[in-house]
């Protein structure tokens, strides 16, 4: 069983400027699953994701305590650059490098990590990533276009392509559809289900319906603590906790 847990979080606490935002989180994410994290705004979902790939390292007023194990290795003992290569991240708002071309946005990661040996290999990888992110058809004729000129939904899919180009083991997605319309949201949801074949996906969402539609497991977070966690079908049909029930029914 434990070999099927790709990511294990133990007693994770995060303090920002002395204020405890995460108050002891325990989670186990099974390999090859879509694991949804739900919870009201400000409950600490983004904070949790940013602890996993150690983005908090750069902020002097943030303290992280507890353990995060990726494939059994303590991420805080790893080289952060290696860790972040293994753990891709898609942010709450699209953040491509606006001044770079579509191609370069996707290519920059593999190039910097020296993952490819030839130009052809790089081109194949970029194409593969853009196809996985369902962006290829829209941009294949003009890969030199500046990323800043794409629409919000396209930018977000470009960020997905950029993240998966590194072939990460785990993909962290922070409300990837929060800024998008229904059509783009549907596209991206389809992508995510598709992506699970290759990556384990940890996705934050505000939206219970979205969690129900795409995820295998759900954790419900409230005020920096895990209130309830389990298979999606169970959480949505038989919530044990009153708060979860309210949230699932849209009452919180």
């Amino acid at each position: 069983m434990s070999s099927d847990i790709i990511l294990k979080i133990e007693k994770l606490k995060v303090k920002i400027s002395g204020k405890e935002i995460l108050k002891g989180i325990d989670l186990e994410v099974p390999r090859g699953s879509i694991f949804a994290i739900m919870g009201p705004s400000g409950s600490g979902k983004s904070t949790l994701l940013r602890a996993i790939n150690r983005l908090w390292d750069l902020y002097p007023d943030v303290e992280v305590e507890g353990k995060i194990l990726l494939e059994g290795r303590d991420v805080y003992q790893m080289d952060p650059h290696e860790l972040r290569k293994m753990v891709g991240m898609v942010f709450q708002r699209p953040n491509p490098f606006p001044h770079m071309s579509i191609f370069d946005n996707v290519a920059i990661g593999p190039k910097m990590h020296k993952m490819v040996k030839s130009k052809e290999e790089l081109e194949r990888l970029v194409e593969w990533s853009l196809k996985r992110a369902y962006l290829w058809d829209e941009v294949k004729d003009d890969l030199k276009r500046k990323a800043g000129r794409l629409s919000g939904g396209q930018q977000q899919r470009l960020c997905i392509a950029r993240a998966i180009a590194l072939k990460p083991k785990v993909l962290l997605m922070d409300e990837p559809t929060s800024a998008l319309d229904v059509v783009s949201t549907k596209r991206i949801e389809e992508n995510i289900v598709e992506l699970k074949k290759e990556f384990t996906v940890l996705i934050v969402t505000h939206n219970p319906q979205q969690a129900a539609r795409i995820s295998d497991y759900v954790a419900f977070i409230y005020d920096g603590k895990v209130v309830e966690v389990g298979p999606t079908s169970e959480i949505f049909t038989r919530p044990k906790h009153e708060l979860t029930e309210k949230y699932v029914l849209g009452k919180v």
Partner: peptide
């Protein structure tokens, strides 16, 4: 910040994010 973090999240060292990726910006 979000764009700088975009680079860091790819596992690119801070110095390369600052001096290479952001150069054009």
């Amino acid at each position: 910040k979000l764009i700088k973090e975009g680079g860091l999240a790819l596992g690119i060292p801070y110095s390369k994010v600052l001096f290479k990726i952001l150069r054009g910006l």
